[in-house]
Amino acid sequence: MNLHFNSRILCRCLPALGGLLVVSALFTAEASAQVYVQTHNLPQQTGATVASLEYSHAEVSEDLKNYRFNQAEGVARIGHLGVFAESEIRGEWNTGTLALAGFQDTLTINAAGLTGMTGYFTARMRVSGVLLGDASYNGTIYTGYVETKFSALLGGNGSYYTNLSGDYRRNFEGDGFATSGDLPGLMEVEISFIFGTPFLLEGQLKVDTYAQGTLNVANVWALSRAEFGHTAYVEGIDEIFTEDDEAVSGFTITSLSGADYIEGFENAAIPEPATGSALAGAVALMAVLVRRRR
């Protein structure tokens, strides 16, 4: 079991490392307005203001004893992100999926008579979603292993960042983790800036799912799902302060993307990915048929 677990960790670290390298490259850019999306191990999709990507895949052995299914979806626009991932197995297989979405924008804050002075504000991103996990149980132990992870990041101007994360597991112990849970949260980070000088603001949302079956155990099933579709958005910036904690009135915020950060993005429309819908439906039907054969 240890060898199996170690190989799983290695396989899952490779795409995650690639994602971190891409994100690191984006965060070091001096002036940018773009969004990016990655699902499973597919190439990253980028765009000026909107990007979306879907992934869906199923493998079924000839005798239907082993079944592996993954799907992932990521949608991103400036200030508004969504991700969804699911992994399911039946039998001795193991599988995992990743979905990541993020944005990066360059902002400039101006106010009369304050050019060149230091100020600060609180950036806020509202996040909500659900982590789910379930596995077969033979009366003594869980014969499937499930791990579902979530993380979010918000920050800017080089060094001001905050993180929100969650990790749910259904393990091989009889008293395994709770199988589901909500993860709402308000992310807040105080960002310093210089009036009249451009600075970066960026956010990211990521989920990982993993399902594994126990070797040489009959009727094994495991399902891992993370649902954070279109549920992360940046709230409006309604207060700006000088470094002396004095409120600033009449300030303006311009962005390289043209997005309105004073208004915020809670009600901003976000595109629904259309590609792959037929495939997803077919795979869902296959999953139903497989479950009926159990």
Rank of each mutant, 00 (worst) to 15 (best):
R12E: 15
P15V: 05
P15G: 09
G18A: 09
V23Q: 15
S24L: 09
F27S: 14
S32F: 04
S32L: 13
V35T: 07
V35R: 01
V35L: 02
V37T: 15
Q38L: 09
Q38W: 05
T39K: 09
H40Y: 10
N41P: 04
L42Q: 15
L42I: 00
Q44T: 14
T46P: 07
T46M: 12
G47D: 02
A48I: 08
Y55F: 14
V60N: 09
K65D: 11
N66V: 08
Y67Q: 06
Y67M: 05
R68W: 07
R68K: 15
N70L: 07
A76F: 03
A76W: 00
I78T: 09
I78V: 13
H80A: 08
G82P: 05
E86M: 14
S87L: 08
I89K: 01
G91T: 03
E92T: 11
E92L: 08
N94T: 10
T95K: 03
A99F: 00
L100W: 10
A101V: 04
F103Y: 06
Q104E: 12
I109L: 00
I109K: 01
N110V: 03
L114N: 04
T115F: 04
T115M: 11
G116W: 03
G119C: 01
A123V: 00
A123R: 01
R126K: 11
S128E: 13
V130N: 14
V130A: 07
G133R: 08
S136D: 09
S136C: 05
E147Q: 15
K149G: 10
F150I: 06
S151W: 08
S151P: 04
L154P: 06
G155L: 02
G156N: 02
N157L: 00
G158M: 00
G158V: 00
T162I: 07
N163R: 14
S165C: 08
D167V: 08
R169W: 04
R170T: 14
E173V: 06
G174N: 15
G174T: 13
D175Q: 12
F177N: 14
F177C: 11
A178R: 12
P184R: 03
G185V: 00
L186T: 12
L186W: 03
I191V: 07
S192Q: 15
I194E: 15
T197H: 11
L200P: 04
E202L: 10
V207R: 03
D208R: 12
W221H: 11
R225Y: 08
R225D: 10
A226M: 04
E227T: 10
G229H: 07
T231H: 01
A232F: 00
A232N: 01
V234G: 01
E235V: 05
E235W: 00
I237Y: 00
E239P: 06
E239F: 05
I240R: 02
I240W: 02
E243H: 07
D245R: 11
E246G: 07
A247Y: 02
S249P: 03
F251D: 06
T252L: 02
T252N: 13
S255L: 02
E263H: 07
G264W: 01
F265P: 01
I270W: 03
T275L: 13
T275M: 08
S277R: 12
A280R: 15
G281Q: 12
A282C: 05
A284M: 10
L285S: 13
A287L: 09
L289T: 09
L289N: 14
V290G: 04
R292P: 06
